[in-house]
Amino acid sequence: MNVIVCIKQVPQTTDVKINPQTNTLIREGVESIINPFDMYAIEEGVRIKEKYGANTTVITMGPPQAEEALREALSMGIDEAILISDRAYAGSDTWATSYTLANAIRKIGNFDLILCGKQASDGDTAQVGPGISSHLDIPQVTYVKRIQQIKDNIIRVERMMEEGYHVIESPLPCLLTVVKEINEPRLPSLKGMLRAKQAKITVWTQKELNLDPQHIGLSGSPTQVIKIFTPAPRAGGQILSGDPEEIAGKLLELLKSEIS
């Protein structure tokens, strides 16, 4: 079985600060990490490899420094890594990103299962995973919280919904996006880190992928960002004091009108 895990390198969101003078994001010194949801996808890939025997490949699209993210995935036990990197892909929205990733996956060929995190912590769109399966025209299951089994080329999973979950069976190949509940990602091992440090990472540029220029990068992206701004900070509130009974009374008065 061949498993492909798609990941994204994101800024560690907790560290994203806004410069109050210029009203811009301060990205300097912000550490890059693997998107937290993608860690669950990586872990699930490694677990499938351990349980069923599989060859695992991690891919990402991003600037050259995204290689770090790939090496981290290798240190957790993924077998191979591919970096898709080209200025031609800069400015891609979710449509163009999923187009590019889908075509890279086609180039890898012979895949059975694609795993993605539910969404990325910088963009929070949750659109790239389903976008990839749509481009590849394979079945998808989003928000997967458990893989029950993989047997006879059929995968059976639990998909988290608002009021419970759906049990879904899909033939392979298919694409899953996973939520936190699915597992607890392992930390890398020292031996894995040493192996990852020496591993060769395949880099694919537009030269290798040769994609339709109308579908990549800024010009292949239907959406455009026209404005970025800081939301008005929540006004610091009012502190209620007194003994518990008094406080409860005050709060009741304040909330009364909101409670039907």
């Binding site: 969101t13 910088d122 960002v225």
Partner: peptide, 13 residues
């Protein structure tokens, strides 16, 4: 919202 609500973006198509 993007970046976990730290910034807002207006998008058109």
């Amino acid at each position: 919202p993007a970046f976990g609500g730290n910034i807002m973006a207006t998008i058109i198509s």
